[in-house]
Deep mutational scan, measured.
Amino acid sequence: MEVRTIKVFTTVDNINLHTQVVDMSMTYGQQFGPTYLDGADVTKIKPHNSHEGKTFYVLPNDDTLRVEAFEYYHTTDPSFLGRYMSALNHTKKWKYPQVNGLTSIKWADNNCYLATALLTLQQIELKFNPPALQDAYYRARAGEAANFCALILAYCNKTVGELGDVRETMSYLFQHANLDSCKRVLNVVCKTCGQQQTTLKGVEAVMYMGTLSYEQFKKGVQIPCTCGKQATKYLVQQESPFVMMSAPPAQYELKHGTFTCASEYTGNYQCGHYKHITSKETLYCIDGALLTKSSEYKGPITDVFYKENSYTTTIK
């Protein structure tokens, strides 16, 4: 009895394709271990004539594949690729409408935090270190965002349907971005203890939790000093293409032309909904596939993004 075979390709990165001759009487799992086709788990399936010449994702289970996976995804987590594939199996079914010149995501599976993050990423200057993220990001900007969303979920250790947080998501993504040249110098002034300067680099240099107003941050924000008295913390120097200011959701007025974009969060910790506000020729609110415009805006804002380049204080 002759062994019926077909020729397929296996890959971990969709760049390096490895030619395989597979036995049609055995499952993919018996031949390769966990195997995925377009995100779908085909591990328990036997090869079919229609699979001839198709590319299958496999887990990096030998040295060659491990090197290829690390170079593309910059992670050695053995569960990463499987999590990416199972997320992709959902995100490829989502709709990605162009809204006001940006790629958004039609609401499904509690994905409003991903839509808000995706919209924000198209408006701030950011370059990702893992080629996987950078490639998928370019495709997302062009309207094909399924891979990018699935990668975000995998890097953030999230599953489809789980509630997510924009600030946490951005923080994970910033860790995989090139923020080497970003720098922030802060000064804390206390009447009792004097003053202390701190220099922050990388992710810490672009994120701040405690106030939404970048102007206020430049002037000074009140913080408790270690001595128990009130101290003032203010920005001395900022070198970065953008800054992200966050605070627990509270009524906040966004003035046209003073910011790049913002995240609105309605609801409580267990259950809520994100919308995205962007400042173009007027203010726009993007909620999944829905767009509304207004000249002014007041609502429960939790993150505001500002364009920056270089700032030095005039406070002496």
Results as ranks from 00 to 15, higher is better:
residue 176 H to L: 12
residue 142 A to V: 12
residue 215 E to F: 01
residue 126 L to P: 07
residue 83 R to H: 10
residue 289 A to D: 07
residue 157 N to M: 07
residue 132 A to H: 02
residue 239 E to N: 13
residue 78 P to S: 13
residue 55 T to Q: 06
residue 315 I to Q: 10
residue 222 Q to Y: 05
residue 229 K to G: 13
residue 83 R to C: 06
residue 111 N to I: 04
residue 291 L to Q: 08
residue 24 M to Q: 09
residue 200 L to N: 09
residue 296 E to L: 13
residue 142 A to Q: 11
residue 60 P to S: 08
residue 92 K to T: 07
residue 222 Q to R: 13
residue 312 T to P: 09
residue 64 T to P: 13
residue 195 Q to W: 11
residue 213 S to F: 02
residue 136 A to S: 09
residue 106 K to D: 02
residue 100 N to L: 09
residue 115 A to P: 01
residue 108 A to K: 09
residue 268 N to Q: 14
residue 316 K to G: 12
residue 111 N to D: 06
residue 53 G to R: 10
residue 155 Y to G: 03
residue 52 E to I: 10
residue 271 C to P: 11
residue 182 C to K: 02
residue 145 A to L: 05
residue 158 K to S: 02
residue 243 V to N: 05
residue 67 V to M: 14
residue 225 C to P: 03
residue 316 K to C: 14
residue 301 I to S: 03
residue 211 T to D: 10
residue 41 D to E: 06
residue 261 C to K: 06
residue 105 I to L: 03
residue 242 F to N: 07
residue 270 Q to W: 09
residue 170 M to L: 11
residue 146 A to P: 03
residue 246 S to K: 05
residue 116 T to D: 09
residue 305 F to C: 08
residue 152 I to A: 15
residue 184 R to P: 04
residue 46 K to V: 11
residue 127 K to L: 04
residue 58 V to H: 04
residue 272 G to C: 06
residue 199 T to N: 03
residue 130 P to G: 00
residue 22 V to C: 11
residue 301 I to V: 08
residue 107 W to C: 15
residue 25 S to R: 12
residue 26 M to W: 14
residue 207 M to V: 10
residue 24 M to F: 11
residue 116 T to K: 06
residue 62 D to I: 11
residue 53 G to F: 13
residue 10 T to V: 12
residue 15 I to Q: 14
residue 239 E to D: 11
residue 308 E to P: 05
residue 152 I to S: 06
residue 64 T to W: 08
residue 85 M to L: 15
residue 49 N to L: 13
residue 109 D to N: 07
residue 64 T to M: 07
residue 289 A to C: 15
residue 80 F to A: 00
residue 11 T to Y: 02
residue 125 E to R: 06
residue 142 A to T: 12
residue 278 T to N: 08
residue 218 K to H: 06
residue 228 G to H: 05
residue 302 T to F: 05
residue 109 D to G: 05
residue 281 E to M: 02
residue 177 A to W: 01
residue 271 C to I: 14
residue 216 Q to W: 03
residue 17 L to I: 08
residue 72 Y to V: 04
residue 238 Q to G: 04
residue 310 S to M: 11
residue 71 E to Y: 08
residue 180 D to Y: 07
residue 210 G to C: 06
residue 280 K to G: 14
residue 282 T to K: 13
residue 290 L to T: 11
residue 160 V to M: 04
residue 9 F to R: 07
residue 16 N to G: 05
residue 131 P to C: 01
residue 274 Y to R: 04
residue 221 V to G: 04
residue 248 P to S: 07
residue 292 T to Y: 10
residue 50 S to M: 13
residue 297 Y to H: 15
residue 116 T to V: 07
residue 264 E to T: 09
residue 177 A to F: 04
residue 30 Q to K: 15
residue 68 E to A: 06
residue 120 T to G: 09
residue 143 G to S: 02
residue 167 R to Q: 07
residue 101 G to R: 05
residue 155 Y to K: 01
residue 184 R to T: 07
residue 308 E to V: 11
residue 5 T to H: 15
residue 277 I to A: 03
residue 232 T to R: 11
residue 44 K to N: 15
residue 27 T to Q: 12
residue 282 T to H: 10
residue 168 E to G: 14
residue 165 D to I: 09
residue 269 Y to Q: 15
residue 94 W to Q: 00
residue 193 C to K: 03
residue 205 A to R: 04
residue 260 T to Y: 09
residue 81 L to K: 07
residue 311 Y to A: 08
residue 123 Q to W: 00
residue 94 W to S: 01
residue 147 N to G: 13
residue 173 L to Y: 00
residue 249 P to S: 09
residue 7 K to A: 06
residue 229 K to H: 11
residue 170 M to V: 05
residue 149 C to Y: 04
residue 70 F to G: 13
residue 311 Y to W: 15
residue 227 C to K: 03
residue 241 P to C: 05
residue 128 F to E: 00
residue 128 F to I: 00
residue 73 Y to P: 00
residue 54 K to H: 10
residue 23 D to M: 10
residue 310 S to I: 15
residue 294 S to Q: 15
residue 2 E to Y: 09
residue 119 L to Q: 05
residue 295 S to M: 14
residue 122 Q to F: 02
residue 316 K to R: 09
residue 5 T to A: 13
residue 294 S to V: 13
residue 3 V to Q: 14
residue 39 G to V: 06
residue 105 I to H: 07
residue 205 A to K: 03
residue 248 P to G: 09
residue 175 Q to A: 15
residue 122 Q to T: 02
residue 265 Y to N: 05
residue 25 S to E: 10
residue 193 C to S: 03
residue 15 I to M: 10
residue 86 S to R: 13
residue 207 M to H: 07
residue 204 E to V: 06
residue 305 F to G: 05
residue 69 A to V: 11
residue 59 L to F: 13
residue 313 T to M: 15
residue 12 V to A: 10
residue 245 M to N: 04
residue 143 G to C: 00
residue 266 T to W: 09
residue 277 I to K: 06
residue 37 L to D: 12
residue 269 Y to G: 15
residue 296 E to P: 07
residue 179 L to I: 05
residue 185 V to F: 04
residue 76 T to M: 11
residue 93 K to F: 09
residue 221 V to T: 07
residue 196 Q to R: 10
residue 281 E to L: 01
residue 166 V to T: 08
residue 93 K to D: 08
residue 181 S to G: 09
residue 74 H to N: 11
residue 159 T to I: 07
residue 252 Y to Q: 14
residue 130 P to I: 12
residue 314 T to Q: 13
residue 307 K to D: 10
residue 274 Y to E: 09
residue 242 F to I: 06
residue 100 N to P: 00
residue 289 A to P: 09
residue 38 D to H: 10
residue 134 Q to N: 13
residue 177 A to T: 04
residue 185 V to C: 05
residue 77 D to E: 10
residue 251 Q to E: 13
residue 270 Q to G: 11
residue 288 G to Y: 03
residue 269 Y to W: 08
residue 314 T to R: 09
residue 240 S to F: 04
residue 63 D to A: 15
residue 33 G to D: 02
residue 238 Q to F: 01
residue 205 A to S: 12
residue 304 V to D: 06
residue 231 A to R: 06
residue 242 F to Q: 11
